[in-house]
Design a protein around this nucleic acid. Structure first.
Lengths: 250, 250
DNA sequence: GCTTGACCTTGACGTAACGTCAACGTATCT
DNA sequence: AGATACGTTGACGTTACGTCAAGGTCAAGC
């Protein structure tokens, strides 16, 4: 048999056969006088075995290990482990499909949204336009929602998770408006302290404890300050005060 | 924000962020005087968006397409298509796990077998040792069984599938023994024709028609001859005759 | 004898999404 | 000033082959 016959016999390409020779998965057969490889039935059997293991999902390195160990012992271990891998993969896919379905449903109703239906609802509740703080808040929440759905566990998500729940915004709009008024104010403006206090009063206890905990996490301090620097001075000051007050309270 | 802050915020590595810059998925931010990249909240939002799409299973190229088209239209199409992909993958994994489970069950009973339980049974029924034809047959059947489980559809599998069913071997052993007797015989030996006729008589009609069909398939002729060349002349002659007789009959 | 076309040979680059050095400048703490 | 941690660009490694490239071999038809 020549290489293309062997290949079609096993349902692979000639390149694949040569690749397996290269990796040592398949022994090089005799060569004819012209240099052509000459295969026998035995080679086809081995090739088929390699293919079968590979198609079960073993890497070619693992296939080599299995072939090398003439005992059946290693094979069993790998297959068991492989099955566990596949099970995990199945779960992951199911999860992705679920999120995908939710996204599709939301996309049908509101073609421009890019987050979960619940979060989309919250965001629609926010004042629109480029009013300074609302925009900041919108971005922050979008970020938190996005991150919490994908990365699963980051500090930002932990910190802001309470705020991504719709109830948090039930009476929040008016506070946002008052923050916006501080856009061009001085950090010493008397309204700063007032807004901070009202904001603190607005947050339920359980939210506060969760947020304090993740605020103290080392590593959170980094971007926390960086983000505050993006706000006008007076608004940033509000949050400095807010954190202080929450810590006293918590 | 500096790059590592952005990265931890989104739950990725700095390498990933730079990679996205390189691919144009994420705009390069301002540089500080020292050359460091300086990120803002907006960048984090974009990065999170990229990540989310990527984690849903879109390739980075596809992510770029989605981002490029500011309409939501393309997104929907890709998501629908992606869901179909995932569904196919799920099915494939389920299939692999099923085959894997069968293999494991068989391995527990007979640690040395490498094919399906049914086929393992057939092979155990074959005379063992290096008696010429039985060994050839064993290899051929192993090959057919292996190929038919992995590649799914090759000509060899089609041709030999009838033979991989256990009933085919119910009364076959004696014929194999008679073939073995021809190992050193002359192709003109009178027993050749007899064995060919008995072999033909042994095969049920429905098997014959299937086999004839795939024997006529162009492309099958290739390795068919190559395999016959591996047999002693008299045995090869038996099969030449056999094929002729089957064709007259079918 | 010559061309044509189908096959064979080896060698090498391309793919996807980053991980992982390397070699070097920068900021910070002691 | 030195150690440590972080930033920069550049380039190679990973997986399982696909896909040229550049050439040798073989059977068939002119």
């Amino acid at each position: 048999m020549r290489i293309s016959e062997l290949a079609t016999l096993a349902g692979v390409s000639t390149r694949t056969v040569r690749h397996y020779h290269h990796l040592g998965l398949l022994p090089e057969p005799e060569r004819l006088a012209n240099g052509y490889r000459e295969y026998r039935l035995r080679d086809a059997v081995e090739l088929a075995r390699v293919r079968r293991l590979a198609e079960l999902g073993l890497s070619l390195d693992e296939v080599r290990d299995v072939l090398a160990d003439d005992q059946g012992r290693e094979l069993r271990e790998m297959l068991v482990e492989l099955d566990a891998d596949l099970a995990r993969e199945q779960a992951a896919i199911a999860d992705r499909r679920a999120r995908l379905a939710a996204l599709l449903a939301e996309a049908d109703l509101h073609p421009d949204s890019t987050v979960s239906p619940e979060m989309a609802e919250v965001l629609r509740g926010l004042p629109t336009g480029s009013s300074t703080f609302a925009e900041f808040d919108r971005e922050l929440l979008t970020l938190a929602a996005t991150v919490s759905e994908s990365a699963g566990r980051t500090e930002l998500a932990d910190l802001l998770r309470p705020l991504t729940e719709p109830e948090a915004y039930a009476r929040g709009h008016v506070l946002i408006a008052r923050l916006d008024e501080l856009a061009d104010a001085d950090p010493d403006d008397p309204r700063v302290a007032v807004v901070a206090r009202d904001l603190a009063a607005h947050l339920p206890d359980e939210m506060v404890s969760v947020m304090i905990a993740s605020l103290d996490d080392p590593g959170t301090g980094q971007w926390q300050e960086a983000l505050l620097r993006e706000l006008p001075a007076a608004q940033a000051e509000v949050f400095q005060l807010l954190v202080t007050q929450l810590k006293e309270r918590g």
